[in-house]
Amino acid sequence: MKKFLKILLFISLISNLNYVKVFAESSAELLKVDWSFKSFFGKFDRASLQRGYQVYNEVCASCHSVKYLSYRNLAEKGGPEFSEEEAKAIASNFEVIDGPDSTGEMFTRPARLSDKFVSPYANDQEAKAANGGAYPPDMSVLVKARKGGADYIYSLLLGYDDPPADIKLDDGVYYNKYMYGNKIKMSSPLSDDLLEYSDGTKATTEQMSKDVVTFLMWAAEPHLEQRHKFGFRVIIYLVIISILVYFSMKKIWSRIESKI
């Protein structure tokens, strides 16, 4: 029994080493942020999510879609938790194509809560053409689609720098410390006081990066808070029932003369 537990511990240690290894692989050491959604009880910072939505909407949304989010998500529990009225008002700022109507024509109408986020481009080809051949990736699951996750996106946003002397950049290509291959076709999207936060927070580049990454993390994992809550309960339950079963086992095995 003891040996068994020791080996289990050993296995878990090894898997942790792997974990470190995976992240150490990227070219530059990522900037670490003490995200509120990490850890066992991690939750999203509601105000940061709302600011993050503002950054997305005013900056990123001109090129990047989040096609798997719906406007209703903005009012759902565990998200930015805008009120339903606020979410409706946000949705109504966007035009969606609907139809065909009774005459067979397509028409536009203001978006409703049930609609998906409106994409800036009609299709991938248009998106590529408008961005010099580089497709601005959909950001719905972007945080999960990049090694290093939230830290990576945060680092990338703050990783723009002058290129070292030995790197030559073409037009429309920028140097970024954290990008794979260090070349990126997106110019630095954020700068101090680029926008004015509606809650009065000072819009530094770091602040906006942090907020928008928080928003993107939620967009990728909208049930993260529920997952953490459930996880805690499930593990507590499993520990308790394990203890109960252990004593039951001792009781049952005490009927015969043998060790377990």
Partner: peptide, 10 residues
């Protein structure tokens, strides 16, 4: 299952 749950939830 405890190990399993750590992966699923965390």
């Amino acid at each position: 299952l405890i190990v399993f749950a750590f992966f699923v939830f965390y």
